[in-house]
Design a protein around this nucleic acid. Structure first.
Lengths: 129, 129
DNA sequence: TTAAATTGATTACAGGTGTAATCTTTAACT
DNA sequence: AGTTAAAGATTACACCTGTAATCAATTTAA
C-alpha cells in the first residue's frame, strides 16, 4: 500500500531531498517561488511528519526536518501508480507517449539507448543462469 | 490549464474511450470489476459532463454518453503533468526510473528502440531543412 | 388513468488538500 | 525570574473526491 503524499507536500519533499536537515524556515525560504505563507509550509511539514515520510530532531526550540523515505523508492512507487492508473499498465503506450510528445534531445535519446543496452545485458547474464 | 479528472472518473473515461456512445447502465456494466454501485457511476458521469469532458445525446428517457476529449490528448496532458510534478521535468530521470524498475520485456525493449530510431530520423530530416 | 419503475438531478457526508489563522509552549532576553 | 517572541500544535474552512441515497420527472405497465 503506497504512501499518499499530496502535490504541495511533494514540493516540500523535493526541498528536503535536495538538502537536509533543514529548519521549517529554511524550507520556507527554499520554497519562495511557490508563494506560500510560512504557516502553510509548516502545515505541510506537520502533515508529512504525521504521515511518517519526514522525521525531525529537536534543535533548541525548533525542529530540523529530514526525509524519512528515499527519493528513488518514492519515485518508483509514483511511477508504478501512474503507469497503472493512467495507462492501465501498458508500458509500451506510456513510453510511446513520452517519446513522441516530448521531442527528446539527441542527448536524451543517446542516454536512453544506453539504458536499454545496459538493461539488455543485465537480462542476458541473469537469464542464462 | 489542464482538465482535472479524478482517478475514479478516469476509469469511466476509459470505458467510454473503448466504446461509445453508451448509456449509464452500459457503463456500469463495463465497470463491474470496480464494484461501484450504479449510483456511484452515475455520479461520476454527471461530474464528467459538468467538467465538459463527456457529452451526451438524449435517447428517449435516457442519455447516451461519449467522451468529449481525445484519449491521446488526455494521456499527453497527464504525462506532461506527471513529468513536471514528480520528476520536475527531468525526462532522463523519468525514463531511467521506468526502464530500471520495470524490467522491460525483450519485446518492450525492441519496441522502444524502434521508437527511438523513428524519433531520431524525424529529427534529422526536419533539422536539415 | 394511475401506479410503478427507471433515469437523471440533487443532496449527503466523511476524508483529503490547499491555504492559513490562532493557540500553546518554551527558549531566550532583560 | 518574568516577559516576550518564535516554533510547533491545533483549529478552520472551502473545495474535491469516493461513495451513495433520495428526489423529481417521465415513461411504461396495469
Amino acid at each position: 500500500m503506497t504512501i499518499r503524499v499530496s502535490e504541495a507536500e511533494k514540493s516540500v519533499m523535493d526541498v528536503l531531498w535536495q538538502e537536509s536537515p533543514l529548519s521549517s524556515l529554511e524550507v520556507v525560504e527554499k520554497l519562495q517561488s511557490q508563494e506560500w505563507s510560512e504557516k502553510t509550509v509548516k502545515t505541510f511539514l506537520n502533515r508529512l511528519v504525521k504521515k511518517g515520510v519526514v522525521s525531525f530532531e529537536k534543535d533548541g526550540r525548533r525542529y530540523l526536518y529530514s526525509p524519512a523515505i528515499e527519493r528513488e523508492e518514492f519515485l518508483a512507487d509514483e511511477s508504478e501508480g501512474f503507469l497503472d492508473k493512467v495507462f492501465k499498465g501498458n508500458m509500451k503506450e506510456l513510453l510511446a507517449t513520452f517519446v513522441e510528445n516530448k521531442q527528446l534531445s539527441q542527448n536524451e535519446l543517446d542516454y536512453l539507448k544506453g539504458l536499454l543496452d545496459d538493461n539488455k545485458s543485465d537480462r542476458e547474464s541473469s537469464d542464462v543462469k
